[in-house]
């Protein structure tokens, strides 16, 4: 077969090759995002995502969406502007959370025996789905950043509340009150994670009384808007074909 001949001999064969190519690309994209996004999120979200006694109503709510909207924005930029596929955010977060579950189950539980109910990952999926739908409906990076970014931040805490609420039931322990999540952190010894590095309930949002989570979520949403823009541009830049010379195409 010469270079000028087609590799396929019929339309049916072309469709089959195209689908095979789809699965190969999808698998590669999925695993690459899983690895890259997972490392990124562990380095930036880290302990806030690892431990229930870090999942507070101020900093976890603020930090997790801001540092996790990154890869969804970048992958959206590639899949939407190149292929009109509105799954960039969802596929990224599904990859991340599958990676996290593998890590938490095999490493945290399997190797070091932390119960899964102290080290399960945060749920980022509601925000990701809404982010994808807004991009599809609006076909606009700006709209997705402003509305989607804000929604991504706002949906995070309520999307996780059904999972963490049981662990925020109070308990009296040797004369002190703490939540069950605090007690988990105290009981299940982490020699390398002393209590003082736990960044929870710090800040100046005291005038809002007990209702600081919505304020934190709004703040997180606003910053997520900016981060979305930034990473969307990263995604667009990396999705360029300028890296390949024309005569190679």
């Amino acid at each position: 077969m010469s270079a000028s001949q087609s590799a396929v001999r019929s339309r049916a064969e072309a469709v089959q090759v195209s689908r095979t190519f789809d699965w190969m690309i999808l698998f590669t994209l999925f695993t690459a995002v899983l690895g890259g996004y997972h490392i990124h999120y562990m380095l930036t979200g880290g302990d806030w995502d690892f431990w229930t006694d870090w999942k507070d109503r101020r900093l976890w709510v603020t930090v997790a969406p801001i540092v996790s909207i990154t890869f969804p924005a970048a992958v959206q930029a590639c899949l939407w502007w190149r292929y009109r596929l509105p799954v960039g955010a969802t596929i990224s977060v599904v990859a991340l959370m599958i990676g996290e579950w593998i890590n938490r189950y095999l490493n945290f539980w399997g190797w070091t025996y932390f119960p899964v109910n102290i080290c399960f990952p945060s749920n980022l999926l509601p925000g990701a789905i809404v982010l994808d739908v807004i991009l599809m409906l609006g076909n606009s990076m700006t709209l997705t950043a402003v509305v989607g970014g804000l929604a991504y931040g706002l949906l995070f805490y309520p999307g996780n509340w059904p999972v963490i609420a049981p662990l925020h039931v109070p308990v009296e322990y040797n004369g002190m009150m703490m939540t069950l999540a605090d007690l988990q952190g105290y009981h299940y010894v982490r020699t390398g994670t002393p209590e003082y590095i736990r960044m929870v309930e710090k800040g100046t949002l005291r005038t809002f009384g007990k209702d600081v989570a919505p304020v934190s979520a709004f703040f997180s949403g606003f910053v997520s808007i900016i981060i979305y823009f930034l990473w969307h541009f990263f995604g667009r830049w990396f999705a360029k074909t300028d890296f390949i010379a024309d005569d190679n195409l």
């Binding site: 006694d53 999942k55 507070d56 109503r57 509601p126 949906l155 309520p158 999307g159 509340w161 059904p162 609420a165 049981p166 925020h168 039931v169 109070p170 002190m176 009150m177 703490m178 939540t179 999540a181 605090d182 929870v200 309930e201 007990k210």
Partner: peptide
């Protein structure tokens, strides 16, 4: 999200922040 949050608040009416 809204419904699950509401039902969770009904199921766990007493929760406190991390200490």
């Amino acid at each position: 999200v809204a419904a699950s949050m509401g039902s969770t608040n009904e199921k766990y009416p007493v929760t406190t922040p991390l200490q």
